[in-house]
Write a protein that binds this DNA or RNA. Structure first.
Lengths: 138, 138
DNA sequence: GAATTATATTCGCATTGACGCATGCATTGT
DNA sequence: ACAATGCATGCGTCAATGCGAATATAATTC
């Protein structure tokens, strides 16, 4: 309920004005990600992650999908072309950031060798991950 | 390299997360604008305008130049290509907004017929304004 | 139905932000 | 020096935000 509040420009930029939320967006990128990956990769308390995801959701930047016990979050493009372009531009920009690159590397590693991440045993893989991308990890 | 410690991603987006600040940025656009125009066109208290300008300055989004009693503010492009593109994209997006269009129209009007804006008597015109753009005003 | 797992929400607290009001500071003009 | 002008800043107040800790909710498993 109350999931489709009208898109608000201020709220949109405010949602981008926090490093934790930017890291979450960077991890989502093009694909849907399970919450358990966020908490594991950012190494931060689950309630904190959950609140930031709720913030992003209230800003209309992400959407959630439930799959059994797991919640998958994905980026949704805003209902304005201008905002969409800014969001895409931001995601592209984030990829140049060291922290963001490290996060992405950890995500790949977690998906390829989940056995090393105790908390992720049995967690659903992002849909777009396939073993062929797991070149150097063991 | 090019690590400019003064520029902060979070701060950058936070600066964009306020309607008053977006209106100020929209008014500046490509040109330098005197503070007295902001207060007149937005019809809001001068300390409020000044505070928001200070916020934008602290975020590295605008710069100020003193000219006698007047302060001129202008947009400065961030030291990152990504941020620059986002800022330009944002400015372009704002132009589609009704409020922003009205503000711009009022700015043009104020520059062309300052006599109608008591507070702007003698105020310096934006550098890029010339009388040829004042077609229908008297 | 009870326990477990994955995620969301509530609470208390500290910090920040936005605002109005009054005042301070810098520059110009007399 | 004094007053006037244009702008910035300090103060008090209130709302919003971020956080950790605890608790609640939803889906699954026993």
């Amino acid at each position: 309920m109350a999931r489709n509040a009208s898109f608000n420009i201020e709220r949109f930029f405010q949602a981008l004005g926090d490093m934790t939320r930017l890291r979450l967006l960077n991890l989502m990128g093009e694909q849907e990600i399970c919450v358990c990956y966020f908490t594991e990769i950012l190494a931060q308390p689950q309630p904190k992650i959950s609140r930031h995801l709720a913030y992003l959701r209230s800003a209309g930047v992400v959407a959630a999908r439930r799959e059994g016990r797991w919640m998958h979050y994905r980026i949704v493009m805003p209902p304005h072309v201008g905002a969409t372009q800014i969001l895409l531009q931001t995601l592209a920009w984030l990829k140049e950031d060291r922290v963001m690159q490290t996060d992405r590397a950890r995500l790949t590693k977690a998906c390829c060798s989940p056995a090393k991440f105790v908390a992720l045993q049995g967690a659903p893989l992002p849909a777009s991950i396939d073993p062929s991308t797991c070149s150097t990890s063991r």
